[in-house]
Amino acid sequence: MPRRRIFAAYLQETRAECLRYLRSPSFLLPTLLFPAVFFLMFGVVLAGRSTPEAPRFLLASYSTFGVMAPGLFGFGMSLALERDNGLLTLKRALPMPPAAYLAGKMAMAMLMAALITTLLQTLGLTLAHVQLQALQMLRLALVCIAGAVPFCALGLLLGTLVKGQGAPAMVNLLYLPMAFLSGLWFPLQMLPPLVRAQAPLWPSYHLNALAQSAVGFDTGSAWPHLLWLAAFTVVVLAIAVRRLRRHG
């Protein structure tokens, strides 16, 4: 197949996947509004009762919390459902590159991450009066968009492990505790020592460290977090693709 047609196949699958979810309010609205509502409650309404730096900290942490969802729900849960209803089998029978299906879902998750970080930054600047420079805003956006990829890999793995009916419960069982245990809702200093000790095991902890650094907090060198996320993505993605090939 000519390269032009291969590229067109990837583009069409990405376009179809993004349009499918953008036209689905039951997915789009909760994914966009869930982190925004949390930020409004804790970063705007209750900000006066906390330190002046709290809204800026919460902007980064809820941005991390928000961009986890498109990969886990839009990738993992939908894959489990599509395996059950036969859509994945149909996709495999179509004359298109095998990776186009996964690339389309990943592009959708990254687009949703871009919308989420844009919404949260708008709320932070206008309602929470967070002081950010243009470069910090851009850096936070790039961290969030790229940060959706590790959770796409994790979502892909979950989609190969569970059936469609059990996928929502399984994703929520991982999504919410992982956010809490990574220090996204409260600073790790406020949590018990056992929770602080295991926090670096979660990808959300490392992504949050990069997000906090983007808005001006000192979280040390970015390289350990970047390398950890890259290794996590490669390993989990390799396991998930192998399972997908074996079990469909």
Rank of each mutant, 00 (worst) to 15 (best):
L181F: 14
L127M: 13
T31G: 03
A16T: 10
N208S: 14
F151L: 12
A153I: 02
A93R: 13
Q136P: 03
L32H: 01
E53W: 12
N172E: 10
S61T: 15
A214H: 10
F151Q: 02
R246T: 11
S213G: 15
Y62L: 12
G104D: 08
A240V: 04
R56P: 00
M96N: 06
K105E: 04
L102C: 04
M68S: 05
W223I: 11
M190E: 13
L111Y: 06
A113K: 04
M108S: 12
G183W: 09
A134H: 08
P70K: 07
A47R: 11
A99K: 02
P150Y: 08
R5S: 11
V45H: 07
T122I: 10
S182A: 14
P187R: 10
V149G: 06
G71M: 01
A54E: 13
D84G: 09
H225Y: 15
A146T: 03
L28F: 11
L173G: 15
S24A: 14
L40Y: 04
P200C: 09
L40H: 06
L32F: 09
I239P: 00
R83K: 08
L88H: 05
M41Y: 11
R243F: 09
P35D: 01
Y62S: 04
V235N: 00
F57M: 08
V235T: 11
F42K: 05
L28Y: 04
L174N: 05
N85L: 08
T219M: 15
L46Y: 15
R139T: 12
L132E: 12
A240W: 02
K163Q: 05
N85E: 09
Y10F: 15
L40K: 07
P55W: 09
P177K: 00
L115H: 02
L227G: 01
G48R: 14
M106S: 12
A197W: 06
F7W: 14
L132Q: 05
A169H: 05
L244Q: 11
K163T: 10
F180M: 13
N208H: 09
L29D: 08
Q136G: 01
H225G: 00
A109Q: 05
Q131F: 06
Y205F: 15
A69L: 11
L22M: 06
F151K: 02
T117V: 15
Q198A: 10
R3S: 12
V149S: 07
V234R: 03
L132A: 02
L132P: 03
R56L: 09
P52L: 11
A197N: 03
L194A: 15
A230Q: 07
A99T: 04
A47H: 09
T219I: 04
L184P: 01
E13A: 14
L244C: 07
M110S: 03
L157N: 00
R5M: 09
P97H: 11
A211D: 11
M96G: 13
R92F: 12
V162L: 10
P98R: 13
A114I: 06
C144N: 13
G166Y: 03
K91I: 08
